[in-house]
């Protein structure tokens, strides 16, 4: 019964979502299900917060290595939630202050790491160790060149460049043909994979998401 009822709910919900996609009279049911999901996710957030507290309090009580970070997290969690609950979240509140002066800059800091990581990943990816890697390097070089103003300037200085604009090569040939074809092939394969997984879930063949692997 632990398997049958969840599987019945999954199959039914999946079937309903497929039916309402084709039946206009029932189309708003998909919105209703999404609302149900939001409500369930709202309650599950309590579980999430509980898990966060338990894990971190446990580490603090054990004085596990780096337990100071857990203290900071608990203080941050309680201060943010508390200020929001007591004062509200409008402009000028403590919650707003934490959001603007702590959360936003910290998020931006994490995001800005991406620029450096792209450089380090590109450095490794473009090592011309084989013919394929060499082709990748040359293609990447041309695309990068075409995307910076100095690249176009350098290209235009070449004697034959006037007849072949660099942007044409990049936009229409490399990005329009090779890149788009590759991306579409991946998307096509992924879409069929999605249909396959969905069908397996609906038919009850794929049950590992319920736990246990089969």
């Amino acid at each position: 019964m632990r398997r049958e009822i969840p599987m019945a709910i999954t199959t039914l919900t999946g079937l309903i979502m497929i039916i309402v996609f084709f039946v206009p009279r029932w189309e708003d049911w998909s919105d209703i299900f999404l609302k149900w999901f939001t409500v369930i996710a709202g309650f599950a957030l309590v579980l999430g917060a509980g898990s966060l507290l338990l894990v971190n309090l446990n580490k603090i009580s054990r004085k596990a290595s780096g337990w100071g970070y857990n203290v900071v997290l608990i203080i941050g969690l309680l201060a943010t939630a508390g200020s929001g609950i007591i004062q509200g979240i409008g402009p000028g509140t403590m919650f707003d202050f934490i959001f603007v002066y702590f959360f936003t800059p910290l998020s931006a800091t994490m995001f800005s790491l991406l620029a450096f990581y792209i450089a380090s990943a590109a450095f490794r990816a473009f090592k011309a160790k084989s013919l394929e890697a060499g082709l990748l390097l040359v293609t990447a070089f041309i695309v990068m060149l075409g995307r910076v103003p100095i690249g176009e300037m350098m290209w235009n200085a070449l004697p034959f460049a006037q007849s072949i604009p660099l942007t044409e090569i990049i936009e229409k040939w490399i990005m329009g043909c090779f890149n788009t074809a590759g991306q579409r092939a991946i998307m096509l394969g992924a879409s069929i994979g999605i249909i396959s997984v969905s069908l397996k879930i609906l038919l009850g063949i794929e049950r590992s998401y319920l736990g246990g692997g089969d």
């Binding site: 599950a44 957030l45 579980l47 898990s51 590992s208 998401y209 319920l210």
Partner: peptide, 11 residues
Amino acid sequence: RSVVMSTAQEV
């Protein structure tokens, strides 16, 4: 996501 956490715990 907390729902993913609950499901992952079961799995």
